[in-house]
Amino acid sequence: MWSIGELAEHAGVSVKTVRFYSDRGLLPETARSSGGHRRYGPEARDRLHLIRSLRTLDLPVPDVGRVLDEEDALEDVIEGQLRALGSQLAALRWREAALRVLRDCTAEERAERLRLVGAVTAPPSTEALARFWRRWLPPRLPARLVSSFLEQTVPQPPEDPDPAQVLAFARLHAFVSRPCVGNERGQPAVHRPDEGYRPAVLYDGLAEAYALAAPALRAGRPPDTGDALDCFVAAYARSRGARDTAAFRHRLVGMLAADPRIDHYWQLVAELAGPAYPTPGAAHDWLLAALDGDIAGSPARRT
């Protein structure tokens, strides 16, 4: 049996270290001397070495206790630490790029950029963007459609951003955080009940139309007729209880031309996500141009 000083000597640590882990229950004593002093068996040295190894990896004391007391706990603790480190590294990369945003600009730009990047956490949260679209979407839209819509419209910040992406996200965050955005005055006609549209039917169809248009956008092909445009028009027609006719397409062009636009949002998303990600805004514009081209030589008629 070893005293606390003898255990410290055998393990190559200080008495203070042994007492610290003993007081926290990680290194239980085997017995007490007649004078009430702690006594440890040789197995305490191996346990102390294991504790020190785990602490060298910067594991918190509670996690060290789990590894010592629970079988197979080490794997769970390691996974938890890797997730935490991933978040910390993402925050550091974001902070580095944000500092470069401030360094690589003129003195006149610095105050505005500081205001923009200073309003964004590191790593950044997309909650403000999701909140913006939830306000903008029509009420009582099924949760499935809302979730699918947010997945397409809310870009995820890159894990290793460059300064331009940090600035684009900061401007995007500022844009959606302005007061009075997303109210009924900024919504398209299809969101208003008095217009007679069924928004749930529309958004289901638009998601499919945007997906069909995405390959053409990635390939840089000009707007043209085809399945994507037919799906796009059919979504509006079904939501109105109408048929896809030449006359309906002519009316649809006029209605969509009068709708409010959020072009600035999509421009910033494109800067953030890059050309490989065709935004819903870009798909919508491509389909509108295709519709314009389709009706240019087609007279309005009822069929």
Rank of each mutant, 00 (worst) to 15 (best):
247 A>N: 09
257 A>M: 09
222 P>R: 12
247 A>R: 13
228 A>Q: 09
230 D>M: 10
216 A>N: 05
235 A>R: 03
251 R>V: 09
234 A>R: 15
243 R>H: 12
246 A>S: 13
255 M>A: 09
226 G>P: 08
221 R>G: 01
231 C>M: 09
251 R>Y: 15
216 A>G: 15
212 L>T: 00
258 A>Y: 08
207 A>M: 09
214 A>V: 13
206 L>V: 01
248 F>T: 06
245 T>C: 00
240 R>N: 10
206 L>F: 01
259 D>I: 04
219 A>T: 05
261 R>W: 07
228 A>H: 09
258 A>G: 10
230 D>P: 02
227 D>I: 01
258 A>P: 05
227 D>L: 14
230 D>V: 07
219 A>L: 12
224 D>T: 15
261 R>S: 03
240 R>H: 07
207 A>P: 00
215 P>H: 09
230 D>Y: 09
261 R>H: 11
255 M>D: 08
244 D>L: 04
257 A>E: 13
228 A>P: 01
227 D>A: 15
211 A>V: 04
250 H>I: 07
206 L>G: 02
242 A>H: 14
240 R>E: 07
221 R>W: 00
249 R>K: 15
250 H>Y: 06
245 T>G: 02
236 Y>F: 15
258 A>M: 13
254 G>Y: 12
206 L>I: 03
213 A>L: 05
246 A>D: 15
254 G>S: 14
255 M>L: 13
259 D>G: 01
239 S>L: 10
